[in-house]
């Protein structure tokens, strides 16, 4: 049985859109950050999926000729992106905590109501 390999890109795009939807449609700031996490994760998957070579193995060199390795470059990019992702998440959570302390709520609509300058 053979399934066209491109389905992996389509499902990753579906996941990306789920994250994007949570980011723009939900009013709760923590929920937005969770959506941002899903969005980020789907981009990681997209990059890694592009680096995959059919019949390849993890890019750790072994002795012998004719071994196919997957592309190591996306792995390096995403590895650092994950740490930067958690750093930005922490920054977002820090902002959320401060917003809660300033406005008493983390719901976007309520914040707009309380913010006179808006």
């Amino acid at each position: 049985m053979s399934i066209p390999g491109d389905f992996i890109y389509w499902i990753v795009i579906l996941l990306m859109m789920i994250g994007f939807y949570t980011l723009i449609a939900r009013a709760n700031l923590v929920k937005k950050l969770i959506g941002l996490g899903i969005f980020q994760n789907s981009i990681f998957l997209l990059f890694i999926a592009m680096g995959k070579v059919e019949g390849g193995t993890a890019p750790i060199l072994v002795a012998g000729e004719g071994v196919t390795y997957s592309n190591p470059l996306p792995h390096v990019l995403i590895l650092t992106a994950i740490v930067v992702g958690v750093a930005t998440l922490a920054l977002g959570l820090g902002l959320t905590i401060r917003i809660k302390e300033a406005f008493g709520t983390v719901e976007e609509d309520d914040i707009h109501q309380k913010d006179e300058s808006f």
């Binding site: 998957l45 890694i48 390849g56 993890a58 997957s70 996306p74 792995h75 995403i78 590895l79």
Partner: peptide, 9 residues
């Protein structure tokens, strides 16, 4: 990610 060969990630 493991099945996509990205063990480090």
């Amino acid at each position: 990610l493991v099945t996509l060969d990205a063990v480090d990630v």
